[in-house]
Amino acid sequence: MGTMFGNSLHFLLFMLLFSPVAISELCNPHDKKVLLQIKKDLNNPYLLASWDPKTDCCEWYCLKCDPKTHRVYDLFLQTDTDLSGPIPPSVGDLPYLESLEFHKLPKLTGPMQPAIAKLTKLKYLLITSTGISGPIPDFLAQLKNLELLHLSFNNLSGTIPPSLSQLPNLLSLHLDRNSLTGPIPDSFGSFTKPGPDLILSHNQLSGPIPASLGQLDPDRIDFSRNKLEGDASFLFGRNKKTQILDLSRNLFSFDFSKVGFPKKSLIWLDLNHNKIHGSIPAGLTTVENLQQFNVSYNQLCGKIPQGGELGRFDKYSYLHNKCLCDPPLPNCKLIDAI
């Protein structure tokens, strides 16, 4: 009798330890309930077919659990042409979420979900290539741990909220390829130095750049394809560490001959289609790693400096200026003779 009882006890312990029910308990019950609600709110898309209530949610696709706490800290829904509807408000009920990504979901529509403001541990928020519309909300400034805020390739409109500069840990801000209007906020000069990468291209931004942005020194600035105007010379400097500076296809107007360049860091400088005047600074010949350079369609004049990395670029980097000359354009003496 005792042997039979002992065998039964061992069998029971085995079942408790290794049964699917026991394993599923690794998943936090609250998180699992929220995830199933998210699936329901999104009309049970095929992308979330692995989200089976009978299995451990930490084994589901499109998310990651912390190996110690088993709380969901990463949720990434990507590349599904059928997933439709607004961002579910239930995403705000995953309190340990550090990364939230919606990418290549063209039928994800509606405004930014206010419940996202509850995700106080969030470091990475990426909503890219979706049908999300409406303004960029002020509540994003409440997410003080944000390091990356990428809202590219959406249908966002309205002005950029000045409150974004209140994000003390922000390293990268991508708002490109939307329908944003108005100026770049003056408050952006108060970002924690060196400041986040600022990618604001392919919008309808207008007005001058705040001079306070000259105090920042991010790795990358891309303001291209907007309607920005005035002086942008304060973005340059010999002591800067900027790697990519793209101001092309705007209405900027300043004397190019008076700006300096970092010798080591600068690899990309594109100023085409503006109203920039003066001459090309000789200091550009000392920039060591320049891989892209374009000043075409401006009002520049004078001799093109010879030497250094500038020798890599053909005439298309210089065409349609007021009176630039010397290789790769026609020789200055030849033009004078004419």
Rank of each mutant, 00 (worst) to 15 (best):
L100Q: 02
L12D: 12
S165H: 09
N331Y: 08
K275T: 14
N203R: 03
G260F: 11
R177K: 07
N169S: 12
A282M: 09
I38T: 06
D222N: 15
P327V: 15
P185F: 03
P168C: 06
G260N: 09
P330N: 09
G311S: 14
L13Y: 09
Q204H: 12
I209A: 07
S99L: 08
D186M: 04
L126Q: 12
F76H: 05
F139W: 15
P20G: 07
F191Y: 03
R225E: 13
T120H: 10
P67D: 08
N226H: 00
L329M: 12
L146C: 08
W268H: 14
P67C: 06
P29G: 04
L63Y: 03
F76Y: 02
R312D: 13
G131H: 01
L126I: 14
N44T: 05
L26P: 01
Y297T: 07
C62M: 08
L164P: 13
L167I: 07
A337H: 09
L140F: 05
F102Y: 10
G2S: 13
N178P: 00
N226W: 00
K104P: 00
G134F: 13
T69P: 01
L171S: 14
H277A: 09
S257D: 09
I160D: 08
H277R: 06
K193G: 00
L171V: 11
D66K: 00
K263R: 12
D219K: 06
K144T: 15
A22W: 10
F293A: 09
